[in-house]
Design a protein around this nucleic acid. Structure first.
Lengths: 352, 352
DNA sequence: TTGGGGATAGAAAGCGCTTGCTGCGATGCT
DNA sequence: AGCATCGCAGCAAGCGCTTTCTATCCCCAA
């Protein structure tokens, strides 16, 4: 069968306790003994039994990272940054932790199930990324879970996600509202008065905040919004493509399209181009997030850069207890407006 | 303290054994008893202790997915597909498994460490994605680990990665060589005779295979390659940008640039544009993978579509034992040539 | 020489769960 | 009516490790 601690102990002629202590390095062991043990470990090719260890020590070295869509670089970039700080293997020394990312696919149930699974594994920490679903019962369920986790000693950090009051979770939130507002202000400043908005899926904090920012900008400029100017859809390219076609159908006189994120914006660009409209001469386009590919669009996308990697790294450090949580357990980081080629002044007169 | 199985048993007035059996549903329990137990579980808000369970049952419900770069959609898409089949939460019924993705960052050591960590956790299955490092000692170490894993009953599947003989691992490999060859043949067929090639990082199977395909195409057409036509670099946009500038410096008369993947190709496009060259009029560009954003490039990228999601799903199913492994434990899936706007016939005469 | 300490090592008691085996009342068959 | 069977529940023995407490051994001060 598989090699156990006892086998190693026998081979090294010491007690299992000593082997355990050598392996954990948390108790004085004579150098000669240690060597003998290490040699035995090596010769036997011994691998610690994780579950047994976790059970006995009542702790585990698992750290969970929840993402909405692992195929989306938005989450990939954050996850990567978080994981690099978790130390995973290869990180700094000290407890080797197994940083794992779990893909919820944006589904509330899966989110909850993963949380339970992590709770089962007695995870050392959990980082939740991205917007939350705003369904009240679900939010309550998640909050309850988070509270239970923190009470059990699991460190919980929200990254790019609004704070969850009274759960003990630390939050690094993005200022989606402010970013959305500045973005639309930019467009309005350019002279646009008829702006279409392709929002994310409904019932999501991110969607709502960005849209609120947009509307605040419109309101501040005294522009009254036509309800038909807003379309909801998933955060992907296809959604942007279709939504744009729909927007154009509803009001061909739009001079700008603001998208919920960069992928959506790319889809919008494609739709616009296929409709024979030039960007930004006929219609300006704006995205959000500033993912790497955004600067490769032609023209390059005007968007709001979110410090995904920085925020992720910080969240990771906090999760590892290597950085002080922000005061109040809440930090909000701003996005930076990136003005590029896809936005310009409206040139054409409104057409029928 | 936390609620244990025994607490639930006491509350439901049954033995711990019965509670365990209700929870695992692998032993007949009278309906009335089951209900009583479930009620107690609910009232006590009981959560199974994962480590204890894994220890006693000598199995775990962890499934590991190793990726080289989680921020790269290439891996994100595969991981997503794999995970969806693993059943993670929300998948089909049956054993709820915790599918976790581990980011190796392309580092051999981290790959090995993650493998050990998963071995520690007695993972139910492990899926390794993407190209392997070709360093001999490392390859041997990985092979040894894989063998040990399979011997311990962990199902090992390689997805988009060449087979590892004598390890018991099942492989779904991509025909990178064939894809690369067809892609270059396409360009050559268009009339190109001077093609630059931006390869991936050295010592990687994927890099080598794609490059071999390219060279095979050149050879078949009787084109003798200038060593200066090939540049190596990481699989990212920046690399493509810089490599293209370098290629242009070395030989301004190139009429086509073939990139190791789509991200690199995008960087190449940017560099070409900034150099005042039109695509494809002055220089044709080709990528590999056909990631979603490739069709949004302007012009859309000619590339080789790899069935990332299909392969991932299949790997996931095999990992779960829900699909028969291919005969011989090895399957090779082809990529499909996608001809789009970025490639065209060479129009200009070679310039100095 | 002798008692006190410091430094190590071992014994053993679990950690919380799974599962083979046993026990026992109810059912089916002859 | 009598015995084999079946269905369901409990007992208890671990799974492989960590850790508290105890036992040595050795060195040094007194």
């Amino acid at each position: 069968m598989t090699v156990t601690l006892a086998d190693v102990a026998a081979r090294a002629q010491v007690s299992p306790a000593t082997v355990s202590r050598v392996l954990n390095g948390n108790y004085p062991v004579a150098a000669s003994t240690r060597e003998r043990v290490l040699k035995a470990v090596d010769e036997l090719d011994y691998v610690l039994n994780g579950p047994a260890s976790s059970l006995a020590a009542a702790t585990s070295d698992l750290v969970g990272i929840l993402v909405n869509d692992i195929a989306d670089p938005f989450f990939g970039i954050m996850a990567s940054a978080i994981q690099s700080e978790i130390g995973g293997p290869g990180g700094r020394a000290g407890g080797e932790r197994l940083a794992v990312v779990c893909n919820t696919g944006g589904s509330p149930e899966r989110e909850l199930t993963y949380l339970t699974l992590l709770q089962r594994q007695r995870a050392a920490a959990v980082v939740l990324t991205g917007g939350a679903v705003e369904d009240a019962p679900h939010a309550a369920a998640v909050a309850a879970k988070l509270r239970k986790l923190t009470e059990a000693g699991t460190r919980v950090v929200l990254c790019g996600r609004p704070p969850a009051p009274d759960t003990g979770a630390v939050a690094i939130a993005f200022d989606n509202r402010g970013g959305g507002q500045r973005l639309s202000e930019h467009l309005i400043g350019l002279g646009h008065r008829r702006l279409g908005y392709i929002a994310g899926p409904e019932e999501r904090t991110t969607t709502r905040h960005r849209l609120e920012g947009h509307r605040a900008a419109l309101a501040a400029a005294g522009i009254s919004e036509d309800p038909g100017w807003t379309v909801h859809g998933p955060y992907d390219r296809t959604s942007g493509y279709e939504a744009t076609l729909e927007l154009l159908r509803r009001d061909p006189s739009l001079t700008a399209v603001v998208a919920a994120n960069d992928s959506v914006a790319l889809g919008a660009c494609a739709a616009l181009r296929e409709s024979g409209l030039r960007i930004p001469d006929d219609v300006s386009v704006a995205g959000f997030d500033d993912l790497p590919f955004s600067m490769d669009a032609v023209p390059a996308l005007t968007t709001v850069r979110l410090p995904l990697a920085d925020a992720g790294a910080r969240a990771g450090r906090i999760a590892m207890g290597r950085e002080e949580p922000p005061p109040g357990g809440i930090a909000t980081v701003r996005g930076e407006l990136m003005v590029r080629g896809s936005s310009g002044g409206p040139r054409r007169a409104a057409s029928a």
